[in-house]
Each structure stands twice: as structure tokens, then as C-alpha cells.
Write a protein that binds this DNA or RNA. Structure first.
Lengths: 212, 212, 212, 212
DNA sequence: AATGAATGAGCGTTCATTCAT
DNA sequence: AATGAATGAACGCTCATTCAT
């Protein structure tokens, strides 16, 4: 039993090691520019061995994405719980997202890429776990909105799920502006940071209870 | 003179024909899954002949994207001008966007893909024309917001460019929901259409002048 | 008649023009790096039109080589006739060769390339004319040697043809040393020029009549 | 240990096998006319497998050239050491060269082609080893000449390096006469063999000490 | 568990040349 | 005489993946 566990542990360690190296490479060069050769070389293990730990290249990549989503989830949870009102929690959720983006931009990129057309129509390992975590995220946002409606910091005409989806998908893109868009903002002396702040203000106006 | 024109016209027709076929293929299978071999085979012309009409694969793709952006521009312009107030114009801009998405989802996809990391760092034919059209779009939205501030249908604390960017980037993604997200909405009996409608409502709350 | 001649003349002029441009390109980039596209573009005529003047790319190239060989022939003839003794004439032939190399290194390169394996086993236009000129060269050298034997400036045990061939083929390579070889000489403070001079001295020792 | 060695040996054998086939093809058709497809087909291994053994086509070719240069080096060394005087050694060096050419004309050709413009400006595997062997050759010839000057079988006015270079580059070409040149000699009833013999006689006259 | 060897499929692009007009 | 359109053939190389051991 103990021996088995030891083996398992060792395997887990090695898996983690491979993941660390692959992550580094993917983050530097991008998914398509990194070959399994590159990874196995950098890891120091045979290419075929990598396949013992990961079904294929995609699975390897999605494991990394999963890491990122996990990190985000933690950040989100710990941040949001500090809020008192619903609207405050929503704002904190937004802040959590942007903080995640600032601290782990590569994970963020990887996550977006994992959801791009590049991978669709394929059954990929780990993608269900990623989805599950994504669902948790939606639930947290949803709950914040429900709370906001209850405590009257938000309009009661809002549909929590609808708003949560809106918030989530727009957040994803607000942090990743194209060079051209950044340029446009620059001309108005609006930094990316300020843009994000202002966007959160728009969010609040979107949901706040103006009657109160 | 007339002979030359005829030739030019014929060439233009041929070009269009290639573009039509390639478009079909790209829309079905995606950029990376379609090879120049596939295209030439489907077109019925030699691969090298394709290269007489398009510098390379990317140029071919971006020509298609350009088509789509052109179509959207027309739709946007004709829609927006029907609005009377600023906020009405903004709403119509949104409607134009969603209409475009509904009628030409593939063009929309192609446009997004053309802006993805997949192509960055490269100088690509037609990309400047695409950018130029994209700028026109931003200007139209911007003008609508300015008008809204002037006619007091929108808050005067808004920065037009900031809002325009926010609106534009979020619109891009609201229409492209992942299957999981669509599922989530479905459980709440919210159709994609309804979601879009509701999102436009959120937009309006975001910018409207509540004092009035 | 006169009209025909005029046409012929014009055609000849155009041919020369094409040749001039192609020559420039070949000399700059080398045979294999220049495409018929490049040439036609630079010439300003349609690719197919080039083919009206030259059977194919090789024929075009060999026309240029022919030019060079022609130039060399003239230089050789005029130089050699100034010599009084046979050995003097041989030396002058050598000098003519090296002068040609110095003044027209590109023609020299092209000539050597035309004789390389790159082209063998093929029937190429103009190659017989080139050969014919090459024969003239051999004859001139041969005659010089015969004269040298007669006037006793050279050993009478020499076979003129054998020596001529030896002189001709070695000359070709003495002027085109590899970077490594040039380096080796440099270490001994021997410049390429000096090497050539010394080589001509070796030639003279090779044939001179030591009894005299 | 022994297992590893066995594998290495097997790999070496396979490498040699590929080299043998490729050599055959290159020798028959020439470098540019043989594609990697041809080689892999003839070898009976997948194209990609060839790339496991050789970095690229050039590396494959230069491995073959290296073989040839190695063979020549052996021949040269063993021949030259049999000479007693310097001039004798020089003559033996020449004989070694011609013998090599006679026995391995294809290797000789390949070596010359490897030094042609076709490959310049590129860093190619094995080329440094080839250069190193070429340097050995030059050293051997140089030493022979120095010895010849010392033992007074050669003129003391000679610069050993200069003569060595002259001898080396001319030797390279004497053996590779064009069909036209061979024809010319034939008319004088001079066989290639006789031409080479006579050429060596010229060499000797070139360097010998006539005072002695 | 780990490896080295092997593979099939594919990639976009370029070329010299030839045709119908 | 001159053109624009069209073509077939080829090119070296890389990739993710899977075997036999």
C-alpha cells in the first residue's frame, strides 16, 4: 500500500515537473510554436515518456489551463467573500479578475486560447474539469448578484444568470485589447488600467439600484 | 481600352470565384484545417494559379475578412442614421452588430480569428483596409455617444471613446458564447436572442441619464 | 528589304537590352537565385516575351557567358601579339587572363559556372559558339608555345598542346581561390596578386629553356 | 552498457547504410537532381527517418564528401612517406592525387562541388572536419617542398606555401578536364593518363633545381 | 517505466515553361 | 509581336504520434 502510494507520489511529482517545463515553453512561445520534441528535450525525458503522463499535446496544454483556472478560482473566492453588499461583491469579483490578469497574464492567455476555435470540435482531457471550475465562477458571480438584488443594492429587474454571463464574457475581453484599440485609448490619454477602472464603473451603473 | 477593361473584369470575376470557394471552405473547416491544396482542388484551378490572384494563404483569408467587415460597415451606417437620440443610435448600433452576427456568423468568426494571436507580428495584405474600416465603426459609435451626451439622453460623466471601446469589445463576445455558456442560459430558459436583448438593456442602463 | 532589316535591328536591340538586364541580375544574385519572373519584371516585358528572344533560361545565361568569352578573346589576341618571343607571348597570355579576371570577374565566374556539373548532360544553345571561342584561345596559346620552342626560349621537349591545356586549366583556378586557401596565403603575407605573379613565374620555369 | 553499445553500433550501421544508398544516388545523378524523397524511397525508410540520422540534405552530402576526403588523406600519407627526396615526395603526392581521382572519381567530384558557390555562405555540418583534413593535405605538400629545398632537389627561391597552393589547386583541375579539352588532347593522341604524367613532369621542371 | 526508432501525412510556396488570344 | 493566364511538378522539412523493446 505504502509502496504504491510512494510510486504514485513520485509519478505525480514527475507529472508536475513536466507540466512546469511545458508551461514555461508554452508561455514563452505559444502553443503552436512549441513541439513535443521541444518539450521532451527541455524536460530531459523521452518523447514517448511524455505520452505516458499526458494523452497528447492538447491534454498537456489543457492541464496547464486547468492550473490557471484553479488559481483564478481561489483568488475569486477569497476576494468576493470580503464584500458586504451584493454590488460590492460584484465589484470585488471584477477586481479579482483583473488582478488575476495582471498577475498571471500567461494563464489568462492560455485560457482564452483554449476556448478558441483552434480546439473546438475535439474531445479533450481536462476540459470538463475546466468547465466545472468555470461553472463555480459563474455561480459565485450569480450569487453576488442575487445578494445585490436582495439587499437592494441592485435593480430587482435583473436576471442574475444573464448579468453574470454578461459580466463574465465582457471581463474576458476588456483585459485583452488589440494594439489598435490600445492605441485609440492612448490618444485619449486613457491607460489600460484606467480603462478597466472605468469599465467597472460602467458595470456598476449597469446594475445599481438608482431608486435607492 | 475596352478590351483591357473586359480582361480586368474577367480577372475580377475569377478572383471573386476563388474567394467564394475559399470562403466556403474556410467557413466550414476553419483557416488552419484548409490547405491551399484543398482550395485549388475545389476551385478547379492549379494551386499556382491561386497564387496569381492572392499573394498567399493569409492574404486570401484576409480578403474574406475584408468582405465581412465591409458588409458590417454598410449595415451599421444605414441602421444608425435612423436613430433620433444618441442613446437610440447606440442601441441601433448594437442591433446592427447582432444582426450582422445573426446573418453572417461566419464572417464574424473570421474577423475575430483574424485578430487573434494566430496572425500577429506579421504584415498582411488587406489588414490595413480592415483596420481602417474598424476605425470607421469606432467613430460611428463614438459619435452616437457624443450625441447622447449632448442631447442629455446619456450621462455627461461618460468618456465617449472609453464607452465606445467597451461597447465594441463586449459586443464582439456577447454574440460568441461558448456551448457551456449557452447551456447555462438555456437552463434559465434564456435564449441567445433574449440574452442579447437583455444585454442591450444593460448597456442602456450603463449610459443612460438617470437624472432626466 | 530595308524594312526587314530595320525590324531585325530593332529585335537585336531589344535582345541586347534583355541581355543587359539579365546579366546585371545574374551577376548580382547568381544563376539559381534569379528567376525568369525577376528578369521579365526588371526588363519590363512579359515573361513569355523573353521566351521569344531566348529559348530558355539556360540559353539566356549562356548568351551572357558568350559575351564574356568574346571579350576575353579580344583581350588575349591583342595582348599576345605584342610579345616578341614565344615565352614572352605565353606570359602575356597569362597576363591577359588575369587582367580579364580582374576587370570582368563576373564574366569569369559565369564562364566557370557554365562549365560546372550544374549544366552538363544538356544540349544548350550557344554552347558550341562558346566552345569555338575556347578553341581559339587554345590555339593562340598553342601557337605561342610552338613559337617558343622554335625560338628556343622554351624547351623543345614540350608538347605544345599538352602545355597549352595545362596552362589554360590551371589559370582558370589560380584566380578563383577558396576563402580557406586565401587565408592560408594571407598568413604567409602573400596577397592574391602576388600569388598570381609568382604562379606565372612557376609557369615560366616550367617551360623555359634552361640550356640556353 | 553492452546493450547501449549494441544499439549504438546498430545505429551506426544504419547510418552507414543510408549513406551508402545516398552516395550511390548522388554519384549517379548529382546533388541537385536527387531529392530527399528519392533517397528515402531507395533506402526504404521514411523520409523523416532519414532526418533522424542526418540534420538535412546538405549534412548528408557533406558526410559523403568527408568520406572521400578521409580516403584521400590516407592515400596521400602512405604514398608520400615512401619518397626519399623532397621532389620525389612532391611527385608522389601528385601520384596519390591522381590515383585517388582514378579510383574514386565520384568522391573527387563531390568534393569539388562541395566547395563550389552552390554551398557557400552556409554553415554546414562536417565542413569543419573537411577543412581540417584539407589543411593536413596542404601541410604534407608544404613539408615535402620544404624538404626539397633543404635537400637541394628544389630551387631555394621557392616559397613552400605558394608552391603548395599552386600544386594543390592545379591538381584539382588537371584531373577534371571538360569533354572538349579531352577531345583536343585525343586529336594529339594524348590520353588523359599521359596528360597527367606530362603535367607532373611540368611540375617538376617548375620546382627543380637546375643548377645542381 | 522508459526509450529510441520509425512513420505518414502534410505544409505553403516557387519555378520554368507553355497556352490561347 | 506581345501578353496574361495557367500549369505540373517539385521542394526540403516538421509534426504529433506510435511501435518494439
Amino acid at each position: 500500500m505504502s509502496v504504491k502510494d510512494l510510486k504514485k507520489q513520485k509519478k505525480e511529482q514527475r507529472r508536475k515537473y513536466i507540466l512546469d517545463i511545458a508551461e514555461k515553453l508554452f508561455f514563452i512561445h505559444g502553443y503552436d510554436e512549441v513541439s513535443m520534441n521541444d518539450i521532451s528535450y527541455e524536460v530531459g525525458l523521452n518523447k514517448a515518456t511524455i505520452y505516458r503522463y499526458f494523452k497528447n499535446k492538447e491534454s498537456l496544454y489543457f492541464s496547464i489551463v486547468l492550473r490557471g483556472v484553479g488559481i483564478f478560482n481561489e483568488m475569486l473566492k477569497s476576494k468576493v467573500q470580503a464584500g458586504k453588499t451584493g454590488i460590492e461583491k460584484l465589484e470585488l469579483a471584477g477586481r479579482a479578475y483583473f488582478e488575476f490578469y495582471k498577475n498571471y497574464p500567461d494563464y489568462h492567455d492560455a485560457y482564452l486560447y483554449s476556448k478558441s476555435k483552434r480546439f473546438e470540435f475535439k474531445e479533450i482531457e481536462h476540459s470538463s474539469q475546466i468547465d466545472s471550475l468555470a461553472k463555480d465562477v459563474m455561480k459565485i458571480i450569480c450569487d453576488a448578484i442575487k445578494e445585490g438584488i436582495d439587499d437592494k443594492t441592485m435593480r430587482n429587474s435583473l436576471n442574475p444568470v444573464q448579468v453574470a454571463v454578461f459580466v463574465a464574457v465582457t471581463a474576458e475581453r476588456i483585459v485583452e485589447l488589440s494594439p489598435q484599440t490600445l492605441n485609440l485609448l492612448k490618444k485619449q490619454k486613457i491607460s489600460h488600467e484606467k480603462f478597466i477602472d472605468d469599465s467597472m464603473d460602467l458595470w456598476k451603473h449597469m446594475v445599481m439600484n438608482h431608486l435607492k
